[in-house]
């Protein structure tokens, strides 16, 4: 807009473009609406939720963990798929803010991870080594059950504001609701089935990342990006593409070879 001579009315009208955060919110709402249709990709959606959360609150990384039937937290989606991130989430089935948020059903935060070495002797060193300074874990609650947690990391200079927290809370709720959308709620035990399915999808994705990384000589992170783009391009779910990578590569032409 530098120095462009404009009519003031036009100028103000031009300003009705959306701010980045409004745009991100609009994208979230549109994607939530998409979860109501049949061919909804739960993993892709949860992955988007983590990316949008990161964008909206200016976080360095966001991850989402769900409880498996054993009550253990398992990693399901993150704004980054790099190995060090996966380790940071994986350790949280033993210790860390996600585990505490999950057990207590209340938000857990640390404004300085370097001071948490005693509280979280395995988690804190991994998180600080990855360059994170603060962490926030928001429980994902459904009625009386806590089913998982959303985990937000920032670098030291960037702490979450009260508004940011409200955004994180809202997105954690959206992620929780999405778990119930895939099939009409026509009978009990649906949540157990959905959780199991989401966690199985995550295992399939890891198997496919390994297979694709091996077949193509690329990193696991790159492998995930290729699986996701293939899914989007061909209107398939990430889990379906991943499954074909490891069981029927001919179903995903050009991806495995």
């Amino acid at each position: 807009m530098t120095g462009a001579p404009t009519d003031s009315t036009l100028h103000s009208r031009e300003r009705i473009t959306m701010s980045p955060s409004t745009e991100a919110f609009a994208a979230v709402i549109a994607e939530v609406a998409d979860t109501l249709v049949d061919e909804f990709d739960l993993i892709d959606f949860l992955h988007s939720v983590t990316q949008h959360t990161a964008d909206l609150v200016g976080a360095a990384a966001v991850g989402l963990m769900l409880a498996d039937a054993g009550g253990d937290l398992q990693f399901v989606a993150a704004s980054q798929e790099a190995a060090e991130m996966l380790e940071i989430f994986q350790i949280q089935n033993r210790e860390g803010p996600c585990l505490e948020a999950f057990h207590t059903g209340t938000p857990v935060a640390s404004a300085d991870l370097t001071k948490e070495m005693v509280r979280w002797p395995r988690f804190a060193p991994l998180a600080t080594a990855a360059g994170f300074g603060t962490v926030q874990a928001m429980p994902m609650r459904l009625r009386d059950n806590t089913i998982g947690a959303l985990n937000v990391f920032t670098v030291t200079e960037r702490q979450l504001s009260v508004t940011d927290l409200a955004v994180v809370r809202a997105l954690a709720d959206v992620a929780t609701i999405s778990l119930l959308q895939e099939r009409a709620i026509q009978r009990g035990a649906l949540l157990a089935e959905q959780l199991q399915k989401a966690l199985t999808s995550r295992i399939i994705i890891e198997q496919a990342k390994g297979a694709l990384a091996q077949a193509r000589g690329i990193t696991a992170d790159d492998a995930f990006q290729r699986i996701r783009s293939h899914a989007r391009r061909h209107h398939l779910t990430i889990a379906d593409v991943a499954r074909m990578c490891v069981t029927d590569p001919s179903g995903v032409p050009g991806l495995m070879q």
């Binding site: 198997q207 390994g210 297979a211 694709l212 990384a213 091996q214 990578c245």
Partner: peptide, 9 residues
């Protein structure tokens, strides 16, 4: 699981 996928390839 990643190793499982790698070994299968």
């Amino acid at each position: 699981y990643q190793a499982q996928g790698m070994v299968s390839v």
